[in-house]
Design a binder for these strands. Structure first.
Lengths: 109, 109
DNA sequence: TTTTACCCATAGCTAGACTAGGGAAGACTA
DNA sequence: TAGTCTTCCCTAGTCTAGCTATGGGTAAAA
């Protein structure tokens, strides 16, 4: 068992926004999808996810709607707003910029 | 003026360790070097740097020694310990792993 | 002698991810 | 029919660690 990998602070919003860019999803589904796409490396804990979704609603990046899930359970579906789409773009480019900068530092002998 | 870029939480130790892997340096010099190598993207604030160095001393990753700087001022030079070198290796591989995982998520259409 | 660059450090704030709980409801199984 | 599993939601409280703001001291340059 490898050490548990946490979500780097600051990247959770980006991961959620990106996941929702493909269409509306409920929270549980978002976590599963991130887990799957990351090859089981990233685990989004529910105690991180739901508070983050609340904050994102407040910031106006998402809107939410209750409706039955594919498994016929009550679920809250989240959708990106225009502002959320813009935020996603900003976070993606900021992430690329910072990762590039860090690489420059750690790859210099 | 672009938005100020912060050091992503969790990467500061790695950046410091990597910088010190090239030899002993004082705090001020570490910050300057990270700034330079990152092409002026990363700014290590003194209020982040010195507390981090203290924590790293306590963890045993660094040892410190007071001696005059190149500019003839009193300065505290930090050196990697064996444990710090090991930690650097772990942080580098963990960072690579997480960045790869995040890329998989954000590059999936 | 005033300013600038160098160099160290702490207190208090804050964001945000975590652990550890607490539900409820459909579906499957004994 | 009961029991358990899976799916789905949520909150309280903790903790890490980077930030702002502040303070101080010394050598060199203007």
């Amino acid at each position: 068992m490898g050490k548990k990998t946490e979500i780097p602070p600051g990247t959770l919003y980006m991961l959620i926004l990106k996941t929702l860019a493909g269409g509306a999803m409920h929270g549980y589904g978002i976590a599963q999808r991130i887990h799957l796409l990351s090859n089981n490396v990233l685990e989004v804990e529910e105690g991180s996810l739901y508070p983050a979704l609340q904050r994102m609603l407040i910031k106006g990046w998402l809107k939410a709607e209750w409706r039955p899930s594919e498994n016929n359970r009550r679920a809250r579906y989240y959708t990106l707003t225009k502002s959320g789409r813009k935020q996603l773009g900003m976070e993606l480019s900021e992430f690329a910029k910072v990762v590039t900068a860090i690489h420059r530092v750690i790859e210099t002998a």
